[in-house]
Amino acid sequence: MARTALPAQKLAALGLAPTYVTPDAAGVSLRSGGKQVLHVKNGSGASITVTLKIAKTIEGQAVTNPTATVGAGADKFFGPFSDNYEQLDGTDTVFVDLSSVTTVTVACLTL
């Protein structure tokens, strides 16, 4: 199953009305570039877990993927993302998993 690729939506001095999408169950991907943030809006009645996927290893050992909770009916911003979060394919892509996507929407915002 493919991840939902999120295009970066540029913030503007006169305002941005971002477009939110329902992510795929496999998660989302976005380009890092050091200026992007992920906005996760949880419209469900239960908390969800957001997992930032780290592909790198240190001395051959996998690094634990950091997680955060987005409460029921709440939203959170994640990022900006350093190169520690980029996948090893050379595309500056960040992978994010969500424990549930039911009534969850996301957007990638950039400075």
Rank of each mutant, 00 (worst) to 15 (best):
S32W: 06
V63C: 03
E86Y: 06
A8E: 04
T69G: 05
S29F: 03
I58K: 03
G90W: 12
Q9N: 04
T103W: 00
A72V: 07
V63G: 02
G27H: 13
P18E: 03
I58A: 06
L111Q: 13
N84Y: 10
V101M: 11
G79N: 05
T103E: 10
A5F: 11
E86A: 12
K35I: 05
V37P: 00
P7L: 02
D83R: 11
G79P: 02
P23S: 14
T91D: 14
P18T: 05
N65D: 15
D97C: 03
D97F: 01
G15L: 04
D24T: 08
D24Q: 11
L30H: 09
F81A: 05
L6S: 02
T57A: 04
D75V: 00
T19V: 14
D75P: 01
V94W: 01
A12E: 12
A74R: 09
A74G: 00
A107N: 14
D83Y: 15
G71V: 09
V63K: 10
T67A: 06
L16Y: 06
A46W: 00
K56C: 03
T22R: 13
T67F: 09
T57M: 00
A46Y: 01
Y20C: 06
T64W: 05
K10F: 05
V63N: 10
G34R: 10
T67L: 03
A62C: 04
T102I: 01
K10E: 09
A26D: 01
P80N: 08
D75K: 05
V50G: 02
V37S: 07
V104C: 06
S47D: 14
V40F: 10
D92M: 09
Q61V: 00
C108A: 14
K10A: 12
T64Y: 07
G60A: 04
T51V: 10
A2D: 15
V37Q: 11
D89K: 04
G60H: 00
S100T: 15
G43V: 14
T103Q: 11
C108W: 01
D75Q: 13
P7K: 04
H39K: 15
A2K: 15
L30F: 09
A26M: 01
V21R: 03
T105K: 13
G73R: 14
F95K: 10
V70K: 07
P23L: 14
E86D: 13
I54M: 06
D92A: 15
F77C: 09
R3P: 00
V21I: 09
G34M: 11
E59F: 07
A26Y: 01
T102K: 06
T110Q: 10
T49A: 06
H39P: 08
L109V: 15
A8C: 00
K10I: 07
A74H: 11
G45L: 11
Q36A: 13
G33D: 08
Y20W: 05
A25F: 08
L16I: 11
V28D: 05
K56G: 00
A12S: 12
G43N: 07
T105F: 00
L88H: 01
Q61T: 04
A2Y: 12
D24P: 03
K56S: 05
